[in-house]
């Protein structure tokens, strides 16, 4: 169980590391910007979904 779930965050979009929740320094700049955009887009999807308990909204990574 992730920490975000343990503490009861209602809608969770997982990132790739504690120091960069909205980025990934291992990617080339353009790919990283694309990844960030997907994360924000997923968060926007999530706030429009009803949840009753901590729920994870994974990003379907188009770069993977």
């Amino acid at each position: 169980m992730t920490i975000a779930e343990q503490v009861g965050a209602p809608r969770i979009v997982p990132g790739r590391g504690i120091p960069y929740p909205c980025g990934d320094p291992n990617l080339p700049p353009a790919a990283e910007r694309q990844w960030r955009r997907q994360l924000v887009q997923r968060a926007l999807d999530a706030v429009a979904v009803a949840v009753e308990h901590p729920t994870i909204f994974e990003v379907d990574d188009v770069n993977a």
């Binding site: 504690i18 120091p19 960069y20 929740p21 909205c22 980025g23 320094p25 910007r33 960030r36 955009r37 994360l39 924000v40 887009q41 926007l44």
Partner: peptide, 23 residues
């Protein structure tokens, strides 16, 4: 609480203003 090198190189990695503004 964490190494801020990556965040300081691009603060959008912490607070995604660039992506949010574009959206």
């Amino acid at each position: 609480g964490f190494a801020t090198t990556a965040a300081n190189a691009d603060p959008n990695r912490l607070l995604p203003l660039d992506a949010a503004r574009a959206l």
